[in-house]
């Protein structure tokens, strides 16, 4: 192997990107053997479209885990966004601005509370964001009276199921947000501060990084990315509903850790999470085809987290 290629593959910011791309290849080959129709363009686009909300949520989750924490409130923020947005939109484009503003406002508020509690009060991020997710679930129930309603506007539907330049719009949104994320993480000061904070808070503080501000920013960004994912899902479903089948909290953690971002913080990056999100959705589809039930899937997602954690501990 040429040393340059070797150096590229070993780049810590890539995490497990290269092996996971190979894994996706294997999964697709398996899928193609079992059911050739899965490799059709429309089907691959469907898979990518399904991966988009997960991938977008992983932006925030990656940042949270890089900072040495975790965000367990991602799924509930997405559900709250769906319930509130659909209710405000009522199927009309005229209400887009209000829906975006309200949902962004509540996401920023949630992120601020999470971030301040973790950074300034010193509450464990696991406990804090878990409690927050329970509060948000309750809020979504109260807001909707248990009976969510409303409908996505044409613009939001376009985000969920439309196509732009031949690609599903959801995927285009995901790609744009991913590019911004990679740029911020690797080419800007806040990005470097995030890595420094995650690697070692004490040295980060001593080198002049404003650690609390960085952490608050991470949780606000995480809530905002979950909000964006909430809009994509709302567009895909077309309605507001409390009855979501996918557990984004668990799958997003699995994707980020599988992507090679260290749970201890400061190591890894979004590229690994990006490809892991695709790998997990392809895996999910394959498991559906070969009739593996939900309980076994939960075990597989849990197993993915455990194996990735184990592998990352061994590396060190």
């Amino acid at each position: 192997m040429p040393p340059r290629l070797k150096k590229f593959i070993r780049n810590p910011a890539l995490g497990n990107t290269v092996p996971i791309v190979c894994l996706i290849g294997v999964l697709l080959a398996a899928a193609g053997t079992i059911a050739p129709g899965l490799l059709a363009r429309s089907s691959l686009f469907n898979l990518l479209r399904l991966a988009a909300p997960l991938g977008i949520i992983c932006i925030g989750q990656t940042a949270a885990i890089l900072s040495g924490g975790v965000d367990l409130s991602v799924g509930s923020v997405a559900i709250l966004t769906n319930v509130v947005a659909a209710n405000i939109l009522q199927g009309r484009d005229a209400n887009n601005l209000e829906a975006f503003a309200v949902c962004a406002g509540q996401a920023v508020l949630i992120g601020l509370v999470n971030g301040l509690a973790v950074a300034c009060v010193g509450i464990n991020p696991f406990v804090m964001t878990l409690a927050m997710s329970i509060v948000i679930q309750g809020a979504a129930l109260v807001y909707s009276g248990g009976a969510a309603g409303g409908a996505a506007s044409p613009l939001v539907k376009f985000m969920g199921v439309g196509t732009t330049a031949g690609l599903p719009t959801a995927v285009v949104i995901w790609l744009v947000l991913s590019a911004v994320t990679l740029f911020v993480l690797h080419f800007t000061t806040p990005g470097r501060r995030l890595y420094a904070t995650g690697a070692n808070r004490k040295t980060a503080r001593l080198s002049g990084v404003n650690v609390p501000a960085t952490l608050v920013l991470v949780y606000v960004a995480s809530a905002l990315s979950s909000m964006a994912a909430g809009f994509v899902v709302t567009g895909n479903m077309g309605v507001g509903t409390l009855e979501w089948g996918f557990d984004y909290r668990l799958i997003s953690m699995a994707a980020v850790i599988m992507g090679g971002t260290s749970f201890a913080g400061g190591q890894g990056g979004y590229a690994g999470s990006f490809v892991s999100a695709i790998a997990l959705i392809v895996l999910n589809s394959l498991l559906t085809i070969v009739r593996v039930g939900e309980p076994v899937r939960q075990m597989i997602y849990g197993g993915v987290i455990l194996i990735s954690l184990w592998a990352s501990t061994r590396k060190r």
Binding site: L50, G245, I289
Partner: peptide, 14 residues
């Protein structure tokens, strides 16, 4: 809805 749709998409493709 979301899981029903996702599963059906997979089955239609396969």
């Amino acid at each position: 809805f979301d899981k029903g749709k996702a599963a059906m998409e997979s089955f239609l493709a396969a």
